[in-house]
Design a protein around this nucleic acid. Structure first.
Lengths: 336, 336
DNA sequence: TGGGCTTAGTAAAGCGGTTTACATGACGAT
DNA sequence: ATCGTCATGTAAACCGCTTTACTAAGCCCA
């Protein structure tokens, strides 16, 4: 590979001149410019990014940390971030933590190594304070999708409370009164907020909330199935379920089918996320759509602003919307 | 951040000693080792990777190029690669080409910039020779999932021919004789091979292959739906379809439903890939499973071997397997 | 004719490591 | 006493680029 010096020699100028010319830090007469351009073309010179980075201390790269990149929700988020980053000339490192806190910490350390300029962090487990402590002294991080309490960085979330409210109200409007909630781990912001939205809709409609119908566990298909099974085996059955993720909803769907029942005839169901498969399952899932592409793009833009020091740590909330498909049916009283 | 020199000063030795000690290139007496270790701990020294890379010319990072990271198939592949890379201390750059050849070329250039040590490349469009020409002079690339003809690098593919053969034979064994094939773009290796497998099964069973039932287009849901519509509207209808990707199969599923028909009662269907949603759709899809995790892992290992010069350019074929679910029914003749 | 201002550059010191080649002192052997 | 050898390191160049501070030459103007 040709180096900057090679180009300089070939063009009969100093390396400094070439460097400054390439970075628009100097005005050179046409003749000199032509000689440099010719040398670059002839030698097929391409700057060594490593050297550039070492020298400038910037890497023009960011890292995105997801719990699991093979999860379509995070994959879509990552894809949106990547697209935005790419359009600004930033490369993207990715890492899946697979729920391992150590790997989350690793990613943050990489950032400290100046390996990358900034970090977009997604997590899906409640933090015990470790992450918060680590992030407290770092200022080029953006939190996406889920909060880590106690750190003040830009955050891009959705209207979780409103989402659960919309979903629950949709069920209530269909005539349901006995509605259960299935959600993720208790410590998570999204779980708390969605629960609040659920409660608001129920209270507003004057409906009772049964403690044993509030299932908080994890955002997984398995937990959805298990919770649904428990609910269906209870002495009193709900007629509808608000599931706080599509994965949970899929689990419910399978458990219901296994019990020989049918969604929505025997049980109405609303999901959350609107992942690609939501409209492919049977029945197509009524769910709360998160603007995933928008979230990813915005997160990158916040980060970029942060790097350019034009951003203060602020929290953005993106709207969600109810997508009506076919997993909710009007309530028909048992007596009929 | 503390530097190597800081550590050396604190430990009362030269930077050389510290560097060599950290890289196991020198034997030092216990006392010296302890002083260095203490200095590292006290200063919280962490090596600057950029400097290290510039110096060694290695980046301990690879890049993975996918057509679209939000596509679960590629996301799973990427996740597997990432996991393998991570366990060997390699970081992973990701880029989605979104079908843009320019972005594929970009990724290769990044490699040449020594930005990364190696590249795992996935593509899903036939190459017009541009990529092949670019890759011809590069030796740290591994091709995954799909071929680029004319380049001799390690390749990790699946038994495409056998997969389509198994799927088609499964349909034949269920009594079907009128079987259509829906697949991706004509120029692709996987498409060619799967077509061959399909033909082999048909010929073996003495069944005719109708040219108008060979649909080659693209691996997308839309094309699956459109092809199914065409097939259903034809004067003679197939009773079964071999779809060469689960995305295609989903499209078929939707078109069939739209036509007021039912899978598998009116039409049997086999997919290819066994993506996560394959068992979630209605009916759960009988399909050909690709060992995605294995593919990703193996691809990384090939690349690693390549970097260590212990690998010759060889092509690996991974076995696929038929996963029977509920989208295939025995053929019942119309007369009944 | 010399002082100041432009123009068109350059020298050299970093950035933070790695690596090659060499140095110093102690010790054992002759 | 001297030589060779081993143990224990070190000096300095280098990776390829950026950046700060400086300079040489030319020109204008008084």
């Amino acid at each position: 590979m040709a180096t900057l010096s090679d180009v300089a020699t070939a063009a009969g100028v100093s390396p400094t001149a070439v460097s400054r010319y390439l970075n628009n830090r100097i005005e050179l007469p046409q003749g000199t410019r032509d000689r440099i351009d010719a040398a670059i073309a002839k030698l097929d010179y391409r700057p060594n990014l490593l050297a550039k980075r070492l020298s400038t201390g910037k890497s023009e790269a960011i890292s995105i940390v997801t719990p699991e990149i093979s999860n379509p929700f995070f994959a879509e988020l990552a894809a949106a971030v990547e697209a935005a980053a790419d359009s600004h000339g930033y490369a993207v490192y990715m890492s899946s933590t697979r729920g391992d806190p150590l790997r989350e910490i690793d990613a943050i350390k990489r950032l400290q190594d100046q390996h990358v300029d900034g970090l977009i962090m997604m997590t899906n487990r409640p933090d015990d304070g470790t992450l918060a402590a680590l992030l407290r002294h770092i200022d080029n991080v953006v939190l996406l999708d889920e909060d880590i309490p106690g750190v003040s960085v830009p955050k891009v979330f959705v209207e979780n409370e409103q989402g659960a409210y919309l979903g629950t109200r949709h069920l209530i409007e269909a005539g349901h009164r006995d509605i259960a909630l299935i959600s993720g781990p208790a410590g998570l912001m999204s779980v708390r907020e969605r629960q609040t939205g659920f409660r608001r809709a129920m209270v507003e409609a004057g409906l009772p909330i049964r403690a044993e119908w509030l299932m908080l566990g994890e955002y997984s298909r398995a937990y959805g199935a298990q919770s649904a099974k428990t609910l269906l085996e209870g002495s009193v059955r709900p007629t509808a379920i608000m599931a706080c993720s599509d994965y949970l909803a899929i689990g419910v769907l399978q458990a219901v089918r296994q019990a020989g029942l049918v969604v929505p005839d025997d049980l109405s169901l609303v999901g959350f996320d609107d992942m690609a498969f939501a409209e492919l399952v049977d029945p197509p899932l009524t769910t709360i759509r998160q603007p995933v592409a928008e979230m990813g793009r915005l997160a990158f833009e916040r980060l970029l602003a942060l790097l350019n020091k034009t951003e203060v740590a602020t929290e953005i909330r993106l709207p969600v919307e109810l997508v009506v498909r076919r997993s909710v049916a009007p309530f028909v009283s048992k007596g009929q």
